[in-house]
Design a binder for these strands. Structure first.
Lengths: 109, 109
DNA sequence: TCGCTTGATTGCAATATTACGATTGATATT
DNA sequence: AATATCAATCGTAATATTGCAATCAAGCGA
């Protein structure tokens, strides 16, 4: 017990859940918004901006990297992060597909 | 430690994260898709469909109810669940806003 | 009323997540 | 080479989530 029973669900369902989990934390939302806003790679300045410890930020960045939403390139001692446009568009599409248009008539109770 | 430091983030960021968390589990995705597909309220038959224990399904339904994505009405001994159209549209809008269009030129590294 | 069915709740065990201090590895700078 | 800086990783503690058996509560039919 305790672990999600992924074998009961379709590959797609597990995939959607994993993608949602990646953005299911305010720090990761904040990181993504910061990357969108500054357009460029803010790298380590995210630590000052967010107010979390360096180790914690690094952990969140790793998760975002794992699902491919961002990628980082080493620049000297610092690392530059930015949105992965391709994956970003996939997320856009996936959530649009999930929250498909629904008519009020479908509502039954 | 261990708990999310919500006070560090904006209300909106916490809200988005909470919404994402609500759909960050394959069972809840499966429930929503089933409700969309059958159009009507499948109620307790979700238990047979998904293969999880009744208590577990009930718990997931409760979470979906908590964020307002579904609502249930008692019909005799059974309970009829369906999508909450209003909240559904809010989710649709919120994720569309988050995954805003991005141009490849914004990509810097 | 008495059972039967349905679904919510409780209590518990297993696992996952969040957060951070401390350390490590890599690259600049002096 | 010695030192400083940045970010990843390790180890650990606290908290959250997942899942289920068992129980509870409400409505229905005989």
């Amino acid at each position: 017990m305790g672990a999600t029973k992924t074998d009961l669900f379709t590959k797609k369902q597990n995939e959607i859940a994993a993608m949602a989990k990646a953005i299911a934390h305010p720090a990761r939302i904040a990181i993504l918004q910061q990357l969108l806003k500054t357009n460029a790679c803010v790298c380590g300045s995210l630590v000052e901006d967010l107010g979390l410890a360096q180790a914690t930020i690094s952990q969140h960045l790793k998760e975002l990297k794992n699902v491919g939403l961002i990628h980082g390139t080493v620049e000297g001692t610092s690392v530059c992060y930015c949105i992965n446009t391709k994956t970003w568009k996939q997320y856009q599409q996936l959530f649009a597909d999930l929250f498909i248009d629904i008519t009020d008539s479908q509502n039954c109770c």
